[in-house]
């Protein structure tokens, strides 16, 4: 039932973007942790330059889904295709997809033993094979872009949470990704730091990055998202434009969820 529903919903919402190429395609993706089914036939397509916000109650499988897309978790059923490359167990496909998909974690996950510059340049040098000098110049430019050019030589432990998260974004961007995944990037931050991170993300969205964002920041969803996806119990319940989603949701479960958080 849901699979058909979701497919229809996705197609309907895609009208604004159907000229663009598909960046992420999920078809009937399912995943179990032991006996527990965390994802139940997820089908969705995310187009190039699209910004999708994923909402849902705790435990609904948002993180699991987003982590399947760069293979931090592996799905057991269905297909995931990222930028034309299908995720299989072939190591080379995984490596290729990972180098094209940037990820930002709730807890930043910076490397504490490396400086900010070291954090950002590590992968460009060893995965992208960039000359060190070029990588460092690019890293400094990225730090400029996320608003903390003066912190390059510090260690993550010496930065505030908001600054750390911006470094994490810069680290992901340094790989020139085609897609950025955000898993609750502001949930671990104090309120006064949330804005500085969201501003960076808005800028990124304006620049045309394809983004998939799990967040509870409704303001961000309203302002930036091309599409909102609502999940519950491992299924996609409803998708639509923010306008449609926040003003006239079709499903009861969505209404219930919105009434709780708004």
């Amino acid at each position: 039932m849901t699979a058909a529903d979701t497919a229809g919903g996705a197609a309907g919402a895609d009208t604004g973007a159907h000229a663009r190429a598909d960046m992420i395609v999920c078809e009937g993706v399912s995943k179990w942790f032991g006996d527990f089914q965390a994802l139940d036939g997820i089908t969705a397509t995310i187009a190039e330059r699209e910004v999708v916000v994923v909402l849902g109650p705790s435990g609904s499988g948002k993180s699991t889904w987003i982590r399947c897309i760069n293979h931090l978790e592996h799905h057991q059923e269905g297909r995931i295709v990222v930028d034309g490359v299908e995720l299989t167990n072939d190591l080379r496909n995984i490596e290729q997809i990972r180098s094209e998909v940037g990820m930002v974690f709730q807890q930043f996950n910076l490397f504490p033993h490396l400086t900010v510059l070291g954090n950002i340049t590590l992968a460009p040098i060893w995965v992208r094979k960039k000359p060190r000098r070029e990588a460092e110049a690019a890293a400094r430019a990225l730090l400029e872009r996320v608003g903390i050019p003066e912190q390059a030589e510090k260690y993550p432990g010496q930065l505030s949470g908001g600054q750390q998260q911006r470094v994490a974004i810069a680290r992901a961007l340094a790989m020139d990704p085609r897609v950025m995944l955000f898993d609750e990037p502001t949930s671990a931050l104090d309120p006064e730091m949330i804005k500085e991170v969201l501003d960076v993300m808005k800028g990124l969205a304006r620049s045309g990055m394809t983004m998939m964002v799990v967040t509870h920041e409704m303001g961000f969803a309203r302002e930036v998202a091309d599409r909102v996806v609502f999940m519950e119990e491992g299924q996609i319940v409803e998708t639509g434009t923010p306008e449609h989603f926040f003003t006239s949701p079709a499903e009861d479960r969505t209404k219930q969820f919105l009434s709780q958080i708004l």
């Binding site: 293979h71 931090l72 990972r98 940037g102 974690f105 807890q107 996950n109 992968a123 995965v127 790989m175």
Partner: peptide
Amino acid sequence: RSQYEASDAVGLTTVQ
């Protein structure tokens, strides 16, 4: 585990 995930997410190989 978060350090492993962060390394994987930026595409480092196991040896790296």
